[in-house]
Amino acid sequence: MEEKIKQIMEVFHLAENLKRELRHSWLSDGRQESVAEHTWRVSLMAMLVERHLEQDINTTKLLKMIIIHDLVEAKAGDIPAFDTLENEEAKKLKAQNEEKAITHIKELIGGEQGREWYYLWHEFEAKDTYEAKVANALDKLEAQIQHNEASIETWLPIEYDMSYKLGKHTSFSPFLEAFKDAIEQEADTKIKNTSRFGPK
């Protein structure tokens, strides 16, 4: 039992990095967002939307997938999507670093639970199952919501176009499509009503 508690504590200490690992997202008060904050709100979104989805979903599995997905960033760091969008070398390096991180986490936890987390992380990445598709969609939608809440002065030029490209993540679900439309409309209103030099 003492050894198991030690392993659990090591995971907790590793996860603390997510409170300090910053994303390329800013809060409405001008502070940069941590990975832990993003993960928490994606989890909240899952709890709010799961009853509105068109298919039955394993909520426990969905929440595990969301939390485990970002845990690799405690070792590999957070790489914004636009940094790898058209850079195959960067994309490959990111994948290698994340594979090393999830393997380390699997070994750190050990046993059946370590293997479960490892496979759930890969299931998310593959985006083949319903839970993985929902988890991925919510991950992308939450990021856009956060951009909408932040000052537009924090947006990079590429993020204006990316605000209208969420559909590839939500097209499998009419409810998530409607959710996406509302988020894109919010972004569209922000872009039209605000310039980089302040409100019009």
Rank of each mutant, 00 (worst) to 15 (best):
E33N: 08
D29F: 04
A182E: 15
I102Y: 08
L120H: 04
I105A: 00
E89Q: 11
Q146A: 10
D181S: 10
K168W: 11
P80W: 02
L71Y: 02
E125Y: 13
I102K: 07
T129P: 05
L18K: 09
E142S: 12
A90F: 14
K192H: 14
F197S: 02
T103N: 11
Q96T: 08
A74L: 00
K140W: 05
A143E: 11
S171I: 00
K190P: 08
T129V: 09
E131G: 06
K94A: 03
W121S: 02
I102R: 02
R31T: 13
D161G: 04
A76Q: 05
K168V: 09
H122Y: 13
D29Y: 03
H104Q: 07
D70I: 04
W26Y: 15
T194E: 11
L166P: 07
S195H: 11
K4Q: 14
E33H: 07
E142P: 01
D29N: 14
F172D: 07
G30M: 03
H13G: 00
E98H: 08
Y160L: 12
K100T: 00
V134Y: 10
Q55M: 05
I158N: 02
E116H: 02
A101I: 02
R31C: 09
R51W: 10
L22R: 14
P157M: 02
K133C: 10
Q7M: 15
H122M: 06
S151G: 12
A95R: 15
T103S: 12
A187W: 08
L14R: 02
A132I: 12
H13S: 01
L108P: 00
Y118G: 01
S151K: 00
L85S: 14
T129R: 06
I183Y: 09
E153K: 10
N136T: 12
H147L: 15
K190I: 08
V72T: 11
A36C: 13
K4H: 12
I109N: 03
T103A: 05
E3I: 12
I8N: 01
I152K: 03
R20N: 15
H122I: 04
R115Y: 04
S195M: 03
K140S: 00
E37S: 14
E186P: 03
H38R: 10
E131Q: 05
R20H: 15
E86W: 15
Y160P: 06
L141S: 07
I66H: 02
K94S: 01
L62H: 04
K19H: 12
V72C: 04
A137E: 06
T170Q: 10
E37H: 12
G110L: 00
F172E: 07
K190N: 07
N17Q: 11
D128V: 03
D181F: 06
T60D: 11
